[in-house]
């Protein structure tokens, strides 16, 4: 399926079905992130239960510590 991640169109391979899969795909599953799907903000408990669909708009923000 085709989704928009942080404003960029991305073709997702088969097997990426929910937000948790997506974070693993980007190898950021261990980071502290905030994810929004189609304008709805998710708690981390909702990552696995939130299924992705074609044309979803996803924003992923990860927290960093440098400064």
């Amino acid at each position: 399926m085709n989704v928009i991640v942080n404003g960029e169109s991305v073709q997702l391979q088969d097997g990426i079905e929910n937000v948790k899969d997506l974070l693993e795909h980007y190898d950021i599953q261990d980071k502290v992130v905030v994810v929004e799907v189609n304008g709805n903000i998710l708690t981390s408990a909702q990552h696995q239960s939130t299924r992705l669909s074609d044309k979803d708009r996803i924003e992923i923000v990860h927290f960093v510590g440098g400064g």
Partner: peptide, 20 residues
């Protein structure tokens, strides 16, 4: 809003987080 950006990858996002 929670702002994040990547100046090299040309990405930007601003999301509402008050529900958190």
């Amino acid at each position: 809003k929670l702002i994040s950006f990547d100046l090299w990858k040309n990405q930007y996002s601003a999301i509402k987080v008050e529900k958190l």
